[in-house]
């Protein structure tokens, strides 16, 4: 029983660590590839959190065997996470395709330089890093 509580505690702290690292990478880095790394870490942390939520004390994996009486862990978050992993890889592939297209058009992946180029191209001006529309007199 104490072992179960220890496993749950360790898994929750691991999930929190992954989520915090992912958010840190999303807000801190300016390179688009590093932002995608942060997205992947965040997704892994959320998956670990959901699987830890389904864990029960002294339970077995949710596979039916004849004559089984032991309790099972909750299988519904497992199905959810199974789908979320595959969807996460699809999101990564889409983001990487957009990164390749951006690099081919602008030749850089730094978000500040990209914001400046896009602002110049579309006829807007930058105020402290955020492109805003020029007011026509």
């Amino acid at each position: 029983m104490t072992e179960t509580i220890g496993i749950q505690l360790v898994s929750y702290s691991g999930a929190m660590g992954l989520i915090l690292l992912g958010i840190f990478a999303l807000v801190n880095y300016e390179h688009l590839i590093r932002v995608i790394f942060g997205l992947i870490l965040l997704e892994a942390g959320v998956n670990l959190f959901l699987i830890t939520l389904a864990y029960r004390a002294d339970a077995v994996a949710p596979i039916m065997i004849e004559g089984q009486t032991a309790a099972m862990v909750d299988p519904i978050p497992h199905a959810l996470v199974l789908t979320a992993i595959v969807i996460g890889v699809a999101v990564q592939a889409l983001a990487l395709a957009l990164v390749i297209k951006t690099y081919q058009k602008y030749g850089t992946l730094n978000t500040r330089i990209l914001a400046q180029r896009i602002a110049e191209e579309s006829g807007t001006r930058m105020i402290e890093g955020i492109p805003t529309e020029v007011k026509k007199v």
Partner: peptide
């Protein structure tokens, strides 16, 4: 992470994570 999923009694998720992730 997939090793941890096996410890948490989710072998199906661990297989998918190891293959896809």
């Amino acid at each position: 992470l997939s090793v941890l999923f096996v410890v948490l009694q989710a072998p199906d998720v661990a297989l998918t994570e190891a293959a896809v992730g």
